[in-house]
Structure formats: structure tokens, C-alpha cells
Nucleic acid binder design. Structure first.
Length: 545
RNA sequence: GCGCCUGUGGCCCAACGGAUAGGGCGUUAGCCUCCGGAGCUAAAUGUGUGGGUUCAAUUCCCACCAGGCGCACCA
């Protein structure tokens, strides 16, 4: 079966609408829902309810006609034999019940093809650039950056898996005010270390690491004017190591300093000027962002002649398109959400659609220790760093935890719970299922075979487990639509649960040969699916634990 | 003041306008002669308030209440 069963059924529905002359009144796109409750079948549609008013017939009446027609169309179609029953239920829902034959065939694909069987090609090779973290190189990464890193990397993994060509990028703010302040901070700390009495301004970087950099700068004989760059480079190395240990790699570190040196900012301004989108007022240069739906126009060159933050960003994003990316995804902290409309305005000014730039706001995580909030202040250098979370909780638990809520919601992260190696901790629940399967497969010296008779899998828990495995691709689709990988963690927990329930009631080993073989194949498919999901989340898949 | 996000059992949450509002934690009571008990089974507690749209609203719209965040010629 080339097309998936869902698409086939939708096509049959469309044909039935035409046959019943109902297609003219129903103009919307036809979709099949996954019912929340398995009692309502494998697919469901509310089509008859929605048609009721338009066609001036009762919902159940329409549903019955549709089902009649569907049953007729099914004969001889590629879906024949895969649909057990189509029923009208409730107020007029049409519910589709698939046959076991369908599930066995899909399961076989996974056993034979492995993880690739889950790959649905939704991306079709489209070039997408995901820019995330992009923290200023002025200190260690915080938990806020950690969540962005976890979300961004998993989203990138997921998009890659479903056929996009993904590039991960970190925009490096290695020039400007904050680097000057960083340099100033190092200079003052250096003087302090030399015994001078200094007044340390409140907006300078207060963290102790500044002392370390000051010492090092002295050893290397760095001159005052080079302190900012020196410190930024030093801190960047720390950030790179932190991300690496977190399992996050970037394809490109895009330097703002390099961008400034090139003529790209000027040439982007030239383009805007030609299109009458720049004007001078009160000694500053303004971008007419209101032409593209922004609340007000924005300054790009201040009256003192320097660029605002937006200026290089306009050129930077135009450059992204020129580099061949047709879809841009940016992950930002919630403090930047006011910035979305002006950046969208800027890409539109260059003729790109507003939708080609997607901004995902990653909400903050509140850290709890022993049930109490840990208060943070970046300015004072008092904040929980990615490094601390890694040291205390470890990579697996922290990456999983950061994805356990919708990206747009606040996340409470209790360090003590994440540390626990008990059932309270969902990471271990999922990993345990994987290790348990590995253990069984090991002791049976299992190797997948083509000719296994999967139709021996008849138990309720077995069928439920197969269905759960097959849901994986629709979860990937949800991740794409919501631009949020968080559903993966929900799914992994459900799949693990489904497996544990099966395991508790049915023995795999020691059955008659054919049944043991079928059950080994089933749990192998669970293993493949768990492993794939864990990889996308960025968590290890232990064979023993 | 304007804008964005969030209000669901003791606590944390649940993609899609649908069917008896699902799950987890915690609590209580059970389950190992048996493939890994980091597991399984069972019990109890409910949509912030007031309107509206709809055959159908936790979901959409309006107002209000509560909490968080943002509103720079900062980055």
C-alpha cells in the first residue's frame, strides 16, 4: 500500500460526497480525526454533523447514506480488507474500525525496515534554518538558554527525521554595548586584583568568572581595548563546551562582528531606501515597519550614528534567505516577543512572506529545589547555569524535563525530582522499558525474520501496543504543525506504559515457538520506536541500567 | 494604558470545536515459585466569573477577576 490508509479513506469519503451530490455544499478540507477514545474506532469524522444544516437532513441520516456509499467504494479499492467496519455512532459521527490485518502489515514494515519505517517525508528536502540559544557571550548559559537548547535541538532532530534539510545556527552577539561593558568589567576587576580601589558599576557583570578572565588577560598581556573581545572569546569556548556536553551541536556560529565588517548592512539599507522604506527624522534613520503591520516605525540608525539592534538583524535575516533557506525558525525568550512584528516586517520588506519566518517563544523555566523556588538574577550573576543542571541532574533527565511541557508554557523544574531514579521520574520509566526489552531480546538471541506470523498477536494488550507504535508518525506530524517537540515526551511515556502493561500480563519467552517469535518481534518494534523517540529528544537509550 | 501568555481535582499537566473532561504525582488497598518490581492492578477528588456564537464550547468571541511577561534612538 503506497498511500497510507488515512489518505485512502479521505479519498473514498470525497468520492462518496460527489456520489451523493453533497460535494457542492461542503467546501472545507476533509480530515479524519484520531478519536481520543478507542471505543470510537481508529479514525472518526464529524462530517455528517457538519453537513446536516447545509443539506437540511438529519446527521444520522446523512451518515448512513455516506457509509452505504463508502462500503460500496471500498470493494476493489487498495483499502479493501483493511477496514473492518464503518459505523455511525453518537450524534452522527462516522467511525472507522480498521482490521487486524492492517495492523499486522504495518507492524511487519517496522520490523523489516526498522526506524526508517517511521519516516514520513513531510519536508521534501526543504531547507530550513533553526536559530536558537544565541546568548550573548558574556557569561555561562542559564537554564533559560538550556530549555531553548533542548527544544531547538529536538525540533531540529524531528524536522530532519521527517525529511527537512535542517541547519542549526547560533547568532553570536560578539560586538556592541554588552561586549564593551564586559571589557570594562574585566578591566575594573583587573585593577582590583592589582590592589586598586575601584567603583564597580551596577550594570557591569558581577560574576566571579570575571576575576578569572582578568587574571588570564594579565598573564597574556591583553591591552585594555582588547579586553572585551578577549573575554567574549574565552566565554564562547565555555558556552561551546556546555552545549556540547548537553548534546547540542550547531552547524554555524554566525558572528555579528563579521556581519558588521561586511557591506551587508549597508546594502540591505540601500535596498530599503530604493523601495522608499527608510526616512530620516530627529537625526535618526527610521524603517517604515508599519507598512508591514508593525505598531510603529523603528529606528535603525540612532542620532549618534550607531546602529540599533535591529539594523544588523535585518541584514542577517535577508542573508539567511540568500544562503538558500526558504524557511526560517527562530527560538526566542519571552522577553523578545515584542520584537517579532518588526522582524517579520523586515523580511516582508525584502519580498518574503511573513509565514516564511516562524518565531517560537520558549517560556522560562522556574527552578525548584526541595519544593522551593530558586530565585535568580542575571545582573548579579546569581542564576542557575546549564552547567549546574548538567552536573546535578545529568543530560538525559534534564533534556527530557525541558520538553515535558508545551514550549509556550511555564515549566517548573524540580532539581530533586529530576535527580530521583524512581518511578516519579518519567525519564527512567521510558528508559527502563527500553532496557527491559533489550534484556529479553538478548536472552532470546532474537533476530528479526520476514516470515514471522504476527497474526498470533491477538491479546487486547498486544493490539493496543501495535496501535500505539503506529501512532508515532502522527505525533511527528503534530510536532511539525505546532513547531514543538514536546509531544514526543508525552508519546514516549504512553508507549512505555503500553509496553509495561503488556509485559505484566503476557509472557514473551517460554511460549510455543511461533508465539514467542511473534511477541519478540512485537517488542522489537517497541524498542525501535522508543529508541527513535529518545534519539529525537536527545536522551540516551540504555540497553542496561 | 496597550500587547502577549496562563487559569482544569491536594499538586503538575492533556495536539485537533465533538461523544461519559483524559493522564501523571501524591494518598489508600492489593500483585514477585515466573522474561529486569525503576513494573502492574484497583479506589477517590473537576473546567476562574458572567455573557455570546454553535447541533455541540475546557477549546472560538466579548467583558471581568487572578497570575506571569513585554511595551527603548538596550541588546
Amino acid at each position: 500500500m503506497e498511500k497510507n490508509i488515512q489518505e485512502l479513506l479521505i479519498q473514498l469519503l470525497k468520492d462518496s460526497l460527489v456520489k451523493l451530490k453533497l460535494d457542492s455544499v461542503f467546501q472545507e478540507e476533509l480530515i479524519l480525526d484520531f478519536p481520543t477514545d478507542e471505543r470510537f474506532g481508529d479514525f472518526s469524522t464529524n462530517l455528517a454533523l457538519r453537513l446536516s444544516k447545509l443539506a437540511k437532513r438529519s446527521p444520522r441520516d446523512i451518515a448512513i447514506s455516506l457509509i452505504d456509499s463508502l462500503n460500496g467504494q471500498l470493494e476493489g479499492s487498495p483499502a479493501e480488507g483493511f477496514v473492518k467496519e464503518i459505523k455511525v455512532e453518537g450524534a452522527g459521527f462516522i467511525n472507522f474500525y480498521l482490521s487486524e490485518k492492517y495492523f499486522y502489515e504495518q507492524l511487519k514494515r517496522i520490523i523489516v525496515e526498522g526506524r526508517d519505517a517511521h519516516k514520513i517525508n513531510l519536508g521534501r528536502g526543504k531547507n530550513v534554518l533553526i536559530e536558537f540559544v544565541s546568548a550573548n557571550p558574556t557569561g555561562s548559559l542559564s537554564v533559560a538558554h538550556a530549555r531553548q537548547a533542548a527544544v531547538g535541538d529536538s525540533l531540529a532532530n524531528t524536522l530532519e527525521f521527517i525529511g527537512f534539510k535542517v541547519s542549526r545556527e547560533y547568532y553570536l552577539n560578539d560586538e556592541g554595548n554588552q561586549i564593551n561593558i564586559l571589557g570594562g568589567s574585566v578591566e575594573l576587576r583587573g585593577k582590583e586584583l592589582a590592589g586598586e580601589k575601584v567603583e564597580f558599576p551596577e550594570n557591569y557583570y558581577q560574576g566571579d568568572y570575571i576575576y578569572d578572565i582578568a587574571k588570564l588577560a594579565k598573564e597574556k598581556g591583553v591591552r585594555t581595548e582588547g579586553l572585551g573581545d578577549f573575554a567574549a572569546e574565552y566565554i564562547l569556548e565555555i558556552i561551546k563546551k556546555e552545549l556540547e556536553d548537553f548534546g547540542v551541536r550547531f552547524d554555524c556560529w554566525y558572528s555579528q562582528k563579521e556581519l558588521q565588517k561586511s557591506a551587508k548592512i549597508d546594502s540591505s539599507f540601500e535596498f530599503l531606501r530604493k523601495n522608499n522604506l527608510l526616512y530620516e527624522q530627529e537625526g535618526a534613520l527610521w524603517f517604515k515597519s508599519t507598512e508591514f503591520g508593525d505598531d510603529k516605525d523603528r529606528v535603525v540608525i540612532k542620532s549618534d550614528g550607531s546602529y540599533t539592534y535591529l539594523a544588523p538583524d535585518i541584514a542577517y535575516h535577508e542573508e539567511k534567505y540568500k544562503r538558500g533557506f526558504s524557511w526560517l525558525i527562530n527560538l526566542w525568550g519571552p522577553d523578545h516577543h515584542g520584537y517579532i512584528s518588526r522582524l517579520k516586517a523586515s523580511v516582508q520588506a525584502f519580498g518574503h512572506s511573513a509565514d516564511s519566518l516562524c518565531v517560537v517563544i520558549v517560556q522560562l523555566a522556574t527552578i525548584f529545589r526541595e519544593g522551593k523556588v530558586v530565585h535568580m538574577s542575571t545582573r548579579k550573576g546569581q542564576y542557575i547555569t546549564l552547567r549546574e543542571v548538567l552536573d546535578e541532574v545529568g543530560k538525559d533527565a534534564s533534556r527530557f524535563f525541558f520538553l515535558m511541557r508545551r514550549t509556550s508554557s511555564h515549566l517548573d523544574f524540580d532539581l530533586d525530582v529530576a535527580k530521583k531514579q524512581t518511578s516519579e521520574n518519567p525519564v527512567y520509566y521510558v528508559q527502563y522499558a527500553h532496557a527491559r526489552i533489550c534484556s529479553i531480546l538478548r536472552s532470546a538471541s532474537f533476530a528479526p525474520r520476514q516470515d514471522t506470523d504476527l497474526s498470533l498477536l491477538k491479546e487486547k494488550e498486544e493490539i493496543a501496543l501495535i496501535k500505539k507504535i503506529l501512532q508515532f508518525s502522527s505525533v511527528l506530524n503534530v510536532c511539525l504543525v505546532t513547531l514543538d517537540p514536546y509531544m514526543l515526551t508525552v508519546y514516549l511515556q504512553e508507549l512505555a506504559e503500553s509496553f509495561h502493561k503488556f509485559y505484566d500480563l503476557h509472557r514473551v519467552l517460554g511460549q510455543h515457538d511461533a508465539l514467542t517469535e511473534a511477541r519478540l518481534s512485537l517488542i522489537d518494534a517497541v524498542k525501535i520506536t522508543l529508541a527513535t523517540g529518545l534519539e529525537l529528544v536527545g536522551v540516551s537509550k540504555p540497553e542496561k541500567m
